[in-house]
Computed example of a mutant assay.
Amino acid sequence: MTYHPYFRGKQYELITIREKARLMAQSGFVPIVEPVKEALGGLERTLKAVCEANGKVVVIVNPYHGDHRENGEIISTMLEGSYGDRHLIEPGILLKHDTTIEDVVSLYHRHRGRSISLIHAGFNQPKLLADALSSRTNTIRNVFFDKNCGKLYRKHFQSEERILLHDGFERRKNREHPTVEPFSDLNVTFEEEGMTGFGDFLIVGDDYSETGGPAYAVAIHITFIDSDKDDAMFIYHFVSDSQDTPTDPAGKFAEALAKLMRMLNRGESNILETDAIREFRELHRKGHFPGLGYVKKLSMNHHIETLADFLG
Rank of each mutant, 00 (worst) to 15 (best):
K297P: 01
L311G: 07
N124T: 12
F280N: 01
S299L: 02
S242C: 08
G113M: 02
D200W: 00
F198I: 10
K48L: 13
E34C: 06
T100D: 00
K286V: 10
S299H: 07
E52K: 14
K56V: 02
P63M: 05
V188W: 05
N142Q: 11
L152A: 15
K286M: 15
L298T: 06
M24I: 00
L23S: 07
G213A: 07
A132R: 05
Q243K: 12
E279H: 10
I163H: 05
D206S: 14
V295T: 08
K286A: 15
L129N: 00
S76F: 03
A49H: 04
F234D: 05
L95I: 03
A256V: 07
F123Q: 07
R171D: 12
E160H: 15
G197K: 01
K286Q: 15
A132F: 10
V58F: 10
E181D: 03
M78Y: 07
V33F: 05
G92H: 00
I235S: 01
I101F: 10
P290L: 09
Y216K: 09
G291W: 03
V58D: 09
Y153V: 05
Y108F: 12
D226I: 04
L43R: 05
H177M: 05
D200Q: 04
L292M: 11
A219R: 01
H120V: 11
F280H: 02
L292G: 09
T179H: 15
H177Q: 08
H156L: 03
N174I: 04
R281C: 08
H109S: 10
S115Q: 14
Q243L: 08
D146R: 14
I93A: 00
I60T: 10
C51K: 15
A256T: 00
I93K: 07
E13W: 09
C51A: 15
R136G: 08
E273L: 11
N148E: 14
T179Q: 15
T306H: 02
M233R: 05
Y3N: 06
E268T: 14
F310S: 06
A258K: 11
T139M: 12
G293K: 06
A25L: 07
M233Y: 07
N142H: 14
L118G: 03
R154K: 09
M233E: 12
